[in-house]
Design a protein around this nucleic acid. Structure first.
Lengths: 148, 148
DNA sequence: GCGCCTGCTTACGTTAACGTCAACATGATC
DNA sequence: GATCATGTTGACGTTAACGTAAGCAGGCGC
């Protein structure tokens, strides 16, 4: 079944409400991941594409979510953490004041955690820099000896 | 068995070659991890403490390695990656020129990878900042309405 | 001498994040 | 109308990173 066919079958249809639709293979290739992974994220509730003739059809929004998922993974977050982050990106336009405040608080929490992680990385980078400097010095010394 | 006893039994001994020794519980408490985790890291070859009367005795160097392990984890690295990083910190003072160049190359590789990760984090922080700004604006609007 | 505490090893259990494989459906193509 | 590419849903396997439990040993306090 080719859900992409949906797009081909309706080529000139501007699709007023939603824009372009993507197939699962399309996304998998674009992001360089397996189909199984994408379905797995769906099982975990991180994605919820529409179904067209049994096949999965992803909107631009879904695609963006997938991007966020992968970015989260690149950062070292677990899928559970990523799920929390993703819940911050919705259409919570009709949230009550309480809800909005809650969301902002969650964003702050995620922010501080990410920043902590960032600082750890910066520290490791600094340490690696020192080690490298050390090695370079001994290397330079060895070379001086060799030349003379 | 109390390997810490070793330290207590030899209290005033300046221990010329090696400094202070730490017990496993000591390290576990200091770093807030389980004994099992520490032993696990040893099984994986990330730590290799000396044995005193069957008990594990950690030097300051071992302790530092454990710190690096945990920092690596905080950054989102796998134990395998951490192992690679740790191998850069040894006493490779007597390395040949080739070996030193190789090590420096590995450091560079690790550095660029970490920096990529760092940039990803920075990007996520920026996105979260935008989301927060959005929420704050809608929140402010709602409050203005409420006040009037 | 007897618990008690700390430590060791061995073995099995667990969770996350997928990979792999089988069996089946369907639209396109020859 | 048979084949093929692409899709679907299970079900099971796998790796990493530990947790948990069982059983045993050696000091210490009383």
């Amino acid at each position: 079944m080719k859900q992409i066919a949906t797009r081909k079958i309706l080529p000139a249809t501007p699709a007023p409400t939603e824009g372009e639709l993507y197939g699962i293979t399309e996304l998998a290739q674009e992001f360089g991941i397996s189909l199984r992974a994408i379905r797995f994220y769906e099982d975990k509730g991180l994605l919820a594409p529409r179904r067209i003739n049994g096949g999965r059809a992803y909107t631009r929004r879904d695609r963006a979510r997938l991007g966020l998922i992968l970015r989260g993974k690149a950062v070292g977050m677990s899928l559970a953490e990523i799920e929390h982050i993703l819940s911050l990106y919705g259409d919570h336009g009709e949230g009550h004041v309480k809800q909005l405040e809650y969301l902002i608080g969650r964003i702050d929490a995620a922010t501080t955690e990410l920043d902590t992680r960032r600082r750890h990385i910066v520290a490791m980078l600094a340490e690696l820099g020192e080690v490298k400097g050390q090695l370079q010095r001994t290397l330079a010394a060895k070379r001086r000896v060799k030349k003379k």
